[in-house]
Every structure is written in C-alpha cells, then in structure tokens.
C-alpha cells in the first residue's frame, strides 16, 4: 500500500439477502431473493484525486458508499479508508470521511441550517469555538448564508443539497463521499460546487468519490472514472484513455445540395460505411483507425463538392454505452 492511498477497495462484494425466516413472523422481508449489489470491485483513490463512479440505476454506487461509511457491511473483500477497515474500525472511519447522501431525508427538517450543522459538528467533536467560526464559512462556500436561520423544511431541493454538502465539508474530512451531489442543483450552482470541490481536492489533498448521472460534469471533473454495471466494474481509468480507446468520431460532410448529399451517402454506403443524410449534410461513422483522408480519397470526384468537413467526437453517453455493450472488460 502506498502512503498516499486514501480509499482502497479490493474485491469488494455485497450480497443483500432476504431477512431470515424467524424475522418474517413479525415483518415481511424486503427482498424475495438475494441481490448481488457489488461483485468484486477494486478501486484506489489517492490523496488529491477525484474518482467518479458512473453507472445506471442499481449499479451499486450507493451500496459502495454505504459500506464505506458503515451503514451496511460487505460480504466479501475489503474496504479501507486511510488504512482503517470500514467494517471493523467504522467509528474511526466515520471521523475522517465526509458523506453527502443523495437524499434530503438525512437532514433534520424542523431544524434550521445552522442547527443541522451544529449538531453534526458537535457529534464530530469539533470544539465550540472552531464550530462557531466554521459554520458561517461553510454556509458561505455553498452560498447559503441567507438561509442560515431558515428551517430546512422551507428550503428548495437544491438548497438542501447544498446544505448536505456543507455538512459533509464542515469538520474538514480527509475523504469526501458524494452521492449524486448535483442531482437537484441548478447547472450554474452545480458548476460552482464542483469547482469548489476541485479546489479543495488540490489545496487540501482530499480523496473524493463522487457519483453522478450528469456526464458533462464527470467530463468537466477530468477525473479518474469507474464505470459500473450490475455490481461489476466495466472500465476503470481516466476518461481521456477511455476516449482514446473507444472513441469513434462521426465525420460530417456538408455539401451544396441534397442531391450531392445523397450521392456522397450512396458512395459511402458502397464503401461499407454507415451514412445518414440530413438535408445537405451527410454524417458518417467512419471505421476504426482509418484516416479521414482515405475516406475522402475514395469519394473520387464527389469530394470536390464537399464544402466543409467536421469531426464530431462521440458524446460521452454513447462512449459509455459502448463500454457497457462490450460487457465486462477491465
């Protein structure tokens, strides 16, 4: 283990099981059959690094986070934070991790923003003086100063999300676990929050695990990414190499007339390429590592009628979909 490794998962597995038979006398089981939420997940997040967890609903993202903060236990493999085992040393782990759950429900709805933070701070063992100074500061960083004395029930969904983030940051954790932090936050505020997180990561060398369904954000984070599906890791690495490995850019040819466009499309189809005509432009997903020039050359005289050539990188969404299609590949 490297001294810089903060969050380390190795072979992490979680099997949710139906409640034992004797318990069903009193309450119906929440599951009818076992669910494998995590299946041998390996991951290392170093200090000063962000790792984005991407995956469809039910991929196991929240389960992974809940194991790390001690709200459930793994059934195989290990999870450690700063060398502390998430199962055995849960209490110490909870002292060094800031957790932002994805649900509002975790806030005390009838208390004010400040009271919520005070409660957390005291339970985290922050001295009163430090707490009194830090509460206004974290509220300011998430832009909630005006809501300091507002009762949480009266805040909007996005404001509550920002309050949950403020709560996670309050005691100055060494690792941050953010479950869909920007789900309900407006895009501009979300950008602000992510910038804040990125700055913190740099300045304080935090290790951050973040899950999000907003891919443009994941891209903006420039982070390590873990693509998961049904508990398994499909890809682990940075997004640039993902792009290099999987990107199949689409080439767009713009012509003068729809007739020219159809002629080009026919020619491309004859070359065995997929081509779609839209008015005067033709979009073509060109194959493999072949240079665009080669495609153009084969168009022969038709090439002369092309006004513009544009290359569109694949949207991250499609890129990820391709990874899922290919199934499990480390």
């Amino acid at each position: 283990m490297d001294g810089d490794d903060v969050i380390v998962l190795s072979g992490l597995t979680k099997l949710y099981e139906p409640t034992p038979r004797w318990m069903r006398i009193f309450a119906r089981s929440h599951l009818t059959e076992p669910v494998k939420a995590l299946d041998g997940v390996d991951l290392t997040v170093r200090a000063g690094e962000i790792c984005a967890i991407v995956g469809p609903n039910g991929a196991g993202k929240t389960t992974m986070f809940r194991i790390l903060v001690g709200l459930t236990t793994s059934t195989g493999g290990t999870a450690t934070i700063m060398g502390l085992d998430a199962g055995r040393d849960s209490e110490q782990v909870r002292q060094v991790v800031g957790w932002m759950p994805s649900e509002d429900r975790s806030l005390l709805m009838r208390a004010t923003s400040k009271e919520n933070l005070q409660l957390h701070g005291r339970l985290q063992g922050m001295p009163r003086r430090e707490l009194a100074e830090r509460i206004p500061y974290v509220l300011e960083t998430v832009n909630l100063t005006a809501q300091t004395e507002s009762v949480v029930a009266g805040l909007s969904a996005g404001m509550r999300a920002r309050l949950r983030l403020a709560r996670a940051l309050l005691p100055g954790p060494r690792a941050l676990i953010l479950d869909e932090p920007t789900g309900a936050v407006d895009p501009i505020a979300a950008h602000g929050l992510l910038t804040l997180i990125m700055d913190l990561v740099k300045q304080e060398r935090l290790a951050v695990l973040i899950s999000s369904h907003r891919l443009e954000e994941i891209e903006a984070l420039q982070s390590h990414a873990l693509l998961m599906d049904r508990g398994r890791v499909n890809y682990s690495g940075d997004l640039d190499s993902l792009r290099r490995e999987w990107d199949r850019p689409v080439v767009e040819f713009v012509l003068d007339t729809p007739a020219d466009a159809y002629a080009v499309a026919d020619n491309l189809a004859a070359q065995g390429l997929e081509a779609h005509v839209d008015d005067t432009s033709v979009r073509c997903g060109h194959a493999g590592d072949e240079p665009v020039g080669a495609v153009l050359a084969r168009l022969g005289p038709l090439a002369a009628s092309i006004r513009h050539v544009r290359e569109h990188p694949m949207p991250l969404r499609d890129l990820i979909a391709r990874v899922y299609e290919r199934g499990t590949k480390a």
């Binding site: 005390l108 005291r122 063992g125 922050m126 005691p171 100055g172």
Partner: peptide, 29 residues
C-alpha cells in the same frame, strides 16, 4: 482566520465522546 481547513483529525477520549453525544442529542430535543 476562519477559512482554514482543519489541519488535523479530531481525536477524543471516550468520555468526551459520551459528553458530546449527550449534549448533541439534548440539543436536538
């Protein structure tokens, strides 16, 4: 300065933890 990030992780004795916990929960009430 208020903006500084806490440099160290809080370390508490068992006793302090008990007191902190009781106080925090009474506060909720």
């Amino acid at each position: 300065m208020t903006s500084v990030y806490p440099a160290t992780v809080n370390k508490r004795s068992r006793f302090t933890k008990v007191v902190d916990t009781l106080e925090a929960y009474i506060r909720i009430d």
